Simulated assay, not measured.
Amino acid sequence: MAGEIPRAQPPPAEPDPVRDAHPYVLLWQWRRNPLRRRTDRLRAWIALGLALFVLLAAPAAMYAVGDTVHRHYRSTAEHEARTRDQRPAVLVHDAPRHPEPGSDEARETRYPVEVRFTGPDGAVRTGTTDVEPGLPADSTVLVWVDAAGEITGPPLTADEIRSRTMGWALLAFLGVVLAGLAAHGVAGLVLHRRNLAGWDAAWADTARRWTRAP
Rank of each mutant, 00 (worst) to 15 (best):
P59T: 04
H70V: 07
G134I: 04
D67Y: 08
G134V: 08
T128I: 12
E105T: 12
V131S: 05
P112S: 11
A58C: 12
P88K: 07
L142N: 06
A58T: 11
L55P: 03
L142T: 08
A77G: 04
A81E: 15
Q86A: 12
A60F: 14
P154Y: 00
P154N: 01
R82W: 05
G153M: 00
G122D: 08
D138G: 08
R97G: 15
R110T: 07
S139C: 08
E78L: 12
S139F: 08
T109E: 04
L142C: 04
Y73R: 14
A95R: 10
H98Y: 06
V131Q: 04
P112A: 06
R125W: 03
A123M: 10
E114M: 10
G127A: 00
A60S: 15
D85N: 09
E100G: 08
R84K: 01
A47F: 14
T129Q: 04
M62P: 01
S75L: 09
V90Q: 15
L135D: 10
W144T: 02
H93P: 09
A64M: 10
A106T: 12
E80F: 07
A64L: 13
G134H: 05
E114T: 13
G119Q: 00
G122I: 10
T126P: 04
A58E: 11
V113T: 02
H70K: 14
L55S: 14
R107K: 07
L56E: 13
F53V: 10
T126Q: 10
T68P: 03
S139N: 07
R125N: 09
A77I: 08
I46E: 12
A61C: 15
T109K: 05
L48E: 09
A57Q: 02
V54G: 04
A95S: 15
A64F: 10
P120G: 06
R71G: 14
V65D: 03
V131G: 01
R82M: 06
R71M: 10
V124I: 12
R71P: 07
T140A: 07
W45C: 11
A77D: 06
Y111C: 03
R116Q: 14
T129R: 00
T152G: 01
E114Q: 14
F117V: 06
R71K: 14
A137V: 11
A58S: 12
G149W: 00
V54H: 06
E105C: 07
A123D: 10
A77V: 09
L56Q: 09
L52K: 12
D67C: 08
V115C: 07
L50M: 11
R116L: 10
G102H: 07
P136V: 08
H70Y: 14
F117E: 02
R84A: 02
H72S: 06
T118Q: 05
L48T: 15
S103C: 10
W144P: 00
E105H: 11
L50K: 06
I151S: 01
R110F: 06
A51T: 15
R82F: 02
P120V: 05
